[in-house]
């Protein structure tokens, strides 16, 4: 679980690395999720369509309360 609350911006390069990390974790039957995005970061996730490929949550508590796929 990545708490992004202190992140004010995310670039395409960082998103690519996040995807590479997600694939590695998935290969070990794990899941990476992100939570607590600031509005600008949330918009970048929406525009890049990363919201379709990584589980996104409003808060860490919400993320931890959900069963991961």
């Amino acid at each position: 679980m990545l708490d992004l609350s202190r992140l004010s911006y995310i670039s395409s390069a960082s998103l690519r690395i996040l995807m590479i990390l997600s694939r590695k974790v998935k290969s070990q039957q794990g899941v990476i999720a992100v939570a607590t995005m600031q509005p600008v970061v949330r918009e970048i996730f929406d525009i890049s369509k990363f919201t379709f490929v990584l589980p996104c949550f409003g808060s860490v508590a919400e993320a931890l309360s959900r069963p991961m796929p």
Binding site: S12, L15, R16, M19, I47, S48, K49, F52, V53
Partner: peptide, 23 residues
């Protein structure tokens, strides 16, 4: 494609995204 596509299902397809264009 979208950035998500270019780093996942369409990785190495040789195309890019609006986000990379802006950056």
């Amino acid at each position: 494609y979208s950035l998500a596509d270019t780093v996942s299902v369409k990785k190495d397809w040789g195309h890019s995204s609006n986000i990379v264009g802006v950056e």
